[in-house]
Write a protein that binds this DNA or RNA. Structure first.
Length: 620
DNA sequence: TTAGGGTTAG
């Protein structure tokens, strides 16, 4: 209980809850907007029924207000629970203040009224309001929560990762004997799974007398969500063996598992499963598939899936926009966004995150600035911290470091690690050590455990030849027991993922790979390519530097790919960190000399190398 | 009750 109260005190949004609104709002100004069809009803019951249908399906705030006005004029809020329906629609449309004000005005609220409002705020992942309502319902009204109350509250806890609060609700559920209800257990499986307590999730699952399709789906989903794709697929197999038929939620989780594993063969198999089951018309599945193909490097397939969609929604449009952004197609991303607007689909905050990111990746500074300026004014989308991160990246990487810094200083919200991270990244690209050092200090205090901050600063010093400063940062890392993950490159071939680290000799074909690599290095030299040894961030002789750089993991993966696949076949390689500048130049030339398209994905984006050029236009 | 789009740094 103390835990719940402390959470409520932390949530400032609860202030809204305690505001008592006594006067009825003046909705009369909206009366004129009412559809004349409502005047035709002589019987009140039929009018209420028509109004309820209209309210539950209305998609605009102004129309909802107009309907509300009609309700005030003609009927009682309790008639057919029309008041509850209005409250639910206000929440769905994002008018949370209107919803809470109207809710307080409703004369006879029962358990269903409270539950439907809690459920609405749960869908908005607003745990603070959910808990506030739960308390008011329990202690002001004396109503005892039932399963329908508990499930959305648990779901909201899972949504925001509030495990401790979720555990309290779990306790309430146990005391009230709600654990016999399958849906309650399912919501708890989801809570524990999402919060990383897979053991607790499994324990609940095993303890169920009957597991429903949703219970199985939850087990697949939570494992995939935690990065354990193989285990998630394992649950899918067990589910099929238990004779449970999958549905769209299962398939979406399977697609996410494919993304997690990065295996194209598996993705194609799941795509076949989707086509066989006639599930390709499902929008959520098609969106997940589109996104998966983009993340596997096959943008043309993403475009194909998007082209076949009927009435794509904002999520589908955004997934396609993000795919263009990820592949460095800034201009196409902008065209796609403009088309989305012309088609009448409203963009949201995620759409703008990708749009700004697309501008940033392609160096479209003026376009990005313009979208940032109008996103709230024209489209009503609130500026979030991630939008600032994108803008800092856009300004900083294009060389306007001071503008980027000034933007951070002018932020009306607290800049987080993401924003400062974008700035330090730009400092590294632009070689501004002074500012980089200052930003690194901020990052060290904001999150001392993130090894990336130390590595970036150390690499900046190394690139400038300040070896002593670089080693000081490394020593600090060691002192704080922070580990650096080695850079590695992956390439899929023959139902296997082949992984290489720098200087790797573990592959059975090592000798052939190194011979091929030597040949490639020689060919590159013959056409005048000199190794960019400044990318070797170790204080060693020039000769050793050249030897080290020629054994980078992406070069080994390229050599293996050329040996293992037929002439002309594209090579798709994934890296766990950013591609190095020398390897970028190397891949460009190899794509020309060997006549091979090479696609390299680093942590987030793709570089498409064809005929000696890269899709990023060397802007990255 | 489960499921689709999330930027920025190694």
């Amino acid at each position: 209980m103390i835990m719940l109260i402390s959470y409520m005190q932390r949530s400032s949004k609860l202030l809204i809850l305690h505001k008592f609104i006594s006067s009825i709002r003046l909705y009369n100004s909206f009366a004129s907007q009412l559809s004349p069809t409502f005047h035709a009803f002589s019987n009140v019951d039929s009018l209420v029924s028509a109004l309820i249908t209209a309210i539950s399906t209305c998609s605009s705030i102004s129309y909802c207000r107009a309907l509300h006005c009609r309700v005030i004029k003609s009927v009682n809020y309790n008639h057919g629970f029309i008041g509850d329906q209005l409250v639910s629609s206000y929440v769905e449309l994002g008018c949370t203040k209107d919803a809470l004000e109207l809710f307080d005005e409703l004369p006879d609220k029962d358990l269903v009224s409270w539950n439907s409002l809690i459920s609405g705020f749960s869908r908005r992942a607003d745990l603070g309001i959910c808990l506030g309502l739960l308390f008011r319902m329990r202690f002001e009204m004396g109503l005892k929560p039932n399963e329908v109350t508990v499930i959305p509250v648990v779901s909201a806890c899972a949504g925001v990762g509030e495990l401790d609060v979720g555990k309290c609700i779990h306790g309430i559920a146990v005391k009230s004997g709600m654990l016999l209800e399958v849906k309650v257990v399912n919501s708890l499986i989801n809570l524990y799974g999402k919060c990383g307590c897979l053991e607790a999730a499994c324990c609940l699952f095993e303890g169920m007398s009957v597991q429903s399709l949703v219970s199985w789906n939850s087990m697949v989903a939570v494992h995939v969500h935690m990065g354990l794709a193989e285990k998630g697929i394992g649950y899918f197999i067990m589910m099929r063996r238990a004779g449970i038929n999958s549905d769209q939620a299962t398939v979406v989780s399977l697609l996410l598992a494919c993304e997690n594993l990065g295996v194209r063969k598996l993705a194609e198999a799941v795509h076949g499963y989707i086509l066989n089951g006639g599930l390709d018309g499902n929008l959520a599945i098609a969106t997940a598939l589109l996104d998966l193909y983009a993340k596997l490097g096959i943008l043309s397939d993403s475009c194909k899936v998007f082209g076949e969609m009927i009435n794509p929604d904002a999520v589908a449009w955004t997934a396609m926009l993000s795919s263009y952004a990820m592949h460095g197609r800034g201009r196409e991303a902008i065209e796609h966004f403009e088309l989305m607007i012309r088609e009448g689909v409203l963009p949201d905050h995620v759409t703008f995150t990708h749009l700004l990111c697309a501008c940033s990746h392609s160096g479209l500074v003026e376009e990005g600035k313009n979208y940032f300026k109008i996103m709230h004014k024209v489209y009503g989308v609130e500026l979030r911290v991630e939008h600032y991160s994108c803008m800092v990246d856009l300004l900083g990487r294009s060389g306007h470091l001071n503008d980027a810094y000034n933007l951070i200083k002018s932020m009306p919200i607290e800049p987080n690690c993401g924003v400062w991270g974008a700035l330090i990244g730009a400092c590294r690209v632009r070689g501004n050590i002074e500012l980089g050092k200052e930003v690194a200090e901020r990052l060290f205090s904001l999150d001392p455990s993130d090894s990336r901050n130390y590595i970036t600063l150390s690499n900046m010093y190394s690139a400038a030849g300040q070896w002593r400063d670089a080693s000081k940062v490394r020593a600090l890392m060691k002192e704080r027991v922070l580990i650096r993950n080695p850079g590695c490159s992956y390439i899929e071939h023959g139902n296997k993922i082949h992984c290489y680290v720098m200087g790797d000799q573990s592959h059975p074909d090592t000798e052939r790979i190194y011979n091929k690599l030597e040949e490639l290095v020689r060919k590159n030299r013959e056409v005048g390519f000199a190794s960019k040894t400044e990318y070797v961030l170790h204080d060693v002789d020039e000769e050793v530097k050249e030897d080290l750089i020629n054994k980078h993991s992406e070069k080994l993966a390229i050599a293996f790919g050329l040996l293992a696949t037929n002439a002309g076949m594209p090579l798709i390689i994934t890296k766990n960190i950013r591609i190095c500048g020398d390897c970028h130049g190397f891949a460009k030339l190899i794509s020309l000399i060997e006549k091979r398209p090479i696609i390299i994905r680093d942590t987030k984006r793709f570089h498409h190398f064809t005929n000696g050029l890269c899709s990023c236009g060397d802007y990255w």
